[in-house]
Structure formats: structure tokens, C-alpha cells
Design a binder for these strands. Structure first.
Lengths: 228, 228
DNA sequence: CGCGGCTTTGATGTTCATCAAGTAAAGTGG
DNA sequence: CCACTTTACTTGATGAACATCAAAGCCGCG
């Protein structure tokens, strides 16, 4: 089955396949599937079998997990160049988290067995993967530790700055998540997230315009993020 | 320089080198160093350069990190078969955490450049490493999420059960860490950890005998860990 | 229109941090 | 060996931070 093989020109190629020979690349390419998801759609269900190695081509997702009490916890957010299919892929046969699109998102899925077969025969390739996995998990762990050091205000400021600096690279953007999801990410209640954001607005740190959010006083917001 | 090469019989060998040919194994073996650390000694300093790939042969360690405010955060504990030199090894050139022996500990250090050279040429080997790294980081992330779901009592119960079930496999053991360190791990204050443990004692859940700790009512402790 | 999910604000109560003070235990130097 | 210092442990009192409960407005959607 012939694939519209555009991998050669995919700018994400360098992420995983930077030491890959032409024939291996072609093999990967023939066994890949691109899928498109709308905002809100679930890409991976917690508990489902891992059949593919998946990464983002474009868009934005959240990784979350259902606690025993039924409440969701958000583990992290990911955009292209962040790894997605990383936490469980090489250590478990089942996903232990759910991946949901926060925006229109395109993913690339590669048959995991075929990828593993290549990895077993190609150390450079596997080493590249390892770097990626390692970086991504490091970021998650360190980010969670950072959040844990902060109080309510600091955590909310942290999240807003995360989207501004890391995702949108702008002080004005449309917040892609609900207040409730911020709460699920930082481990606080929805009401208190809202209250904090209202305070930021009253204090002239933020402005809201529909779904748009604008950081008016970035230095102050950063100070709050650091010192509460 | 000839090494007392006992790797062939090391039971930990299977962890990383289960698909390794005899000559590769010998190469690893010749480039390894075993070191012994006493309780309290620092094995790896946060910020130091990563020169070796390190894993535990015996003992117990904690991974910690200094916050910007100077307070320590404990990331996780590790015993043999848990990975140690994992978080940063393949994604950074500098350790971003400190590793400290909580008990007399023996580590095995392999020159990282030599290990990487082998990894680049041997996909099976690298794949084995990747499994290990992936498992270890998964455990850290999921454990941290579990702790975050719980309140003070639940978190303290969680830690005690962790040592009982996972480390010592006994309801009676010598607690290898200070009350303060429990606090640094679960993100609460030392005083409240002490208060909680005292309550557990008064409620007949725990008994203390010097440094020894005994779980008297395990089912109740598990219930507290789950539901506060 | 009416319903459900998101947002917002206020009032109240619980949980936890902070401050303070004292005991116990362990190391240090004369 | 004993005074001395330091560090861990413990308990109580107080206040701050945060959760919970309640009520209402908003908005998209069948």
C-alpha cells in the first residue's frame, strides 16, 4: 500500500530520525498514519493498548489521568517537538494516561512493532529516541516540582506564563483550557483559580476579552510566579 | 588496567545488558568502577557534570533538588533495580538533582562516553536501557501524582506504606529518613508530619521503638492512605 | 425557550503553615 | 568524662491559605 510519503520533507523528521538512512526512513514512512483531531477530541484513552508510536505534527494536547476518586489530574501539556507517546511506550503495553486535543491537532502514528524492529537494529536511531523521551519526562518532572513549590497565586501565574512564553510566545493569546483544567493541573479548586485570575485582573496584571487573555504587567506576573 | 571483572555474575547485569554480547560486556566491565558510600554521604551533586552512567548495586538513596528558596525537595527514593542515573543522563550534561545515600550503598559507575559508544552501535542494548529509563521515570511521575491527590494523613500513610511494601517488605523496619525528609517528599511541614505520626501512634496504627517503626493496623493505614 | 456546563462571587469552615517553647539525643571540644 | 552545641523530635496556640457550599449570571445548543 503506497503512502503519500512526505516524511523526507517533514521538519519534525529531525526529531527522531536524524541519523536514519534513506531506506529506514522510507520504511517508517510507509507504516505511518496521519490523523487529524478537533478541539476536545480524545486521541488516546487511558487503559487502551499501545499499538503505535505517536507524535504531534501540529496542535496542542493535554495528558491527563483519572484518579481513584474520579477526579481528573492533568499531567502536562504538549505541543509539537514535545513528545507525546512517551510515558508508557517503552515500559508498558497500556497507556496510563489520556491524551486530548486542546486545539485542532494533527498526529503521526507509526506502527510500534515496526518501529521497535528498526530500533533493535539501529543504535543511533534508538539513541535519538532516548534523548527525546528523556528530555520530555525530565521536563514533566521538573515542572511538577516547580509547581509544587508555589502557592495558589504562584501556580496560576506559572500556568499563564507557561502558555504565554512556551506555547504562544505572545503576551496576548486565547487560553486553550478551562479554569477547571488549570485547577486540575495545579492541584487547586476551580473556584480559587477563578478568584485568583479575577484578582490579577483587578490588580491590572491581566486583561480578559472573551476567550482572549492579555498579560498587561508581565514583570509583576513573573514576580508573583516566583514569590507568590 | 585490569579490572576485577565480576560483571558476568552480577545479578544486576540482566537489567541493562541482557542482550549484550560477551565482548561488549567485557568492555563495559573494564570501564566500570564500584564505589561504596556510607549513610548520609552524597553520591551525586546537583549541578555537577555527568561523566558516568550510574546504578545501584545495593543500598538505598534519595534524589533531591534545591529550590530557588533554598528548601530541598525530595523527588524520589531508589533501591537496586530502580534506576538512579536516569533523569538527566540522556538529555542533559549536568545533573539537576542530588543523590544521597540513606543507607550503606554500593554503586557501579560506567564511563558514559564508552557506554554511549556501545549504545550507538547496538540497538538491542539501547532498547534495554530505554525500557529501564522509561519505567523509572514513569514510576516517579505516577507516584508524584498519587501523592498529590491525597491530604496530609493520606500522604504520610503513603510514605510509610511505601517503605513497608516496596523497600523492606515487612511491617516492621527502621525508618531510613528523618521526619523532615518525609515532609520534603510529600510537600508538607515537618511539624505536621510529626503530628500525624503521633496520631497514628495514639490511634494504634503505628508503634515506635527507637528508630524502629511497626505497622500495627495495616488495613487501617491503607484505608487512610486511600481516603485520608 | 429551557437546559446544562462554565464562570463568578460571597460566606463559612477545615486544613495546614507558622511561631513558640521545650525535651531528647547525638556529636564536639576541653 | 562532662559541659556545650547542635540537630531531631514533640506539642500547643494562632492565623493564613485554601476547600467547600451556595447562589446567581452567562452562553451555547438542542
Amino acid at each position: 500500500m503506497k503512502n503519500d510519503c512526505s516524511c523526507e520533507h517533514c521538519k519534525l523528521r529531525s526529531l527522531f530520525f536524524f541519523h536514519t538512512s534513506a531506506d529506514v526512513l522510507e520504511l517508517m514512512c510507509e507504516n505511518k498514519t496521519e490523523r487529524q483531531y478537533d478541539k476536545g477530541e480524545v486521541i488516546i484513552w487511558e487503559g487502551s493498548e499501545i499499538k503505535d508510536f505517536i507524535y504531534l505534527k501540529s496542535g496542542l494536547v493535554k495528558l491527563s489521568r483519572k484518579g481513584t476518586d474520579g477526579k481528573d489530574q492533568i499531567i502536562s501539556f504538549a505541543k509539537p517537538f514535545d513528545f507525546v507517546s512517551l510515558l508508557s511506550v517503552f515500559s508498558s503495553s497500556i497507556y496510563n494516561y489520556t491524551v486530548t486535543a486542546l486545539d485542532s491537532t494533527i498526529i503521526c502514528a507509526i506502527d510500534l512493532e515496526k518501529l521497535k524492529a528498526v530500533a533493535l537494529k539501529n543504535g543511533e536511531f534508538t539513541m535519538g529516541l532516548m534523548n527525546r523521551v528523556s528530555e520530555a519526562t525530565d521536563r514533566i518532572i521538573l515542572n511538577n516540582l516547580d509547581i509544587r513549590r508555589k502557592n495558589l497565586k504562584g501556580r496560576v501565574a506559572h500556568v499563564i506564563l507557561y502558555f504565554a512564553h512556551y506555547v504562544y510566545k505572545d503576551t496576548r493569546f486565547e487560553l486553550p483550557i478551562l479554569r477547571r483544567e488549570i485547577a486540575e493541573y495545579i492541584g487547586m479548586t476551580t473556584e480559587n483559580v477563578i478568584r485568583t485570575m479575577s484578582e490579577f485582573r483587578k490588580d491590572g496584571i491581566l486583561k480578559f476579552d472573551g476567550k482572549e487573555i492579555e498579560i498587561v504587567n508581565e514583570r509583576l506576573l513573573e514576580s508573583v510566579s516566583e514569590h507568590g
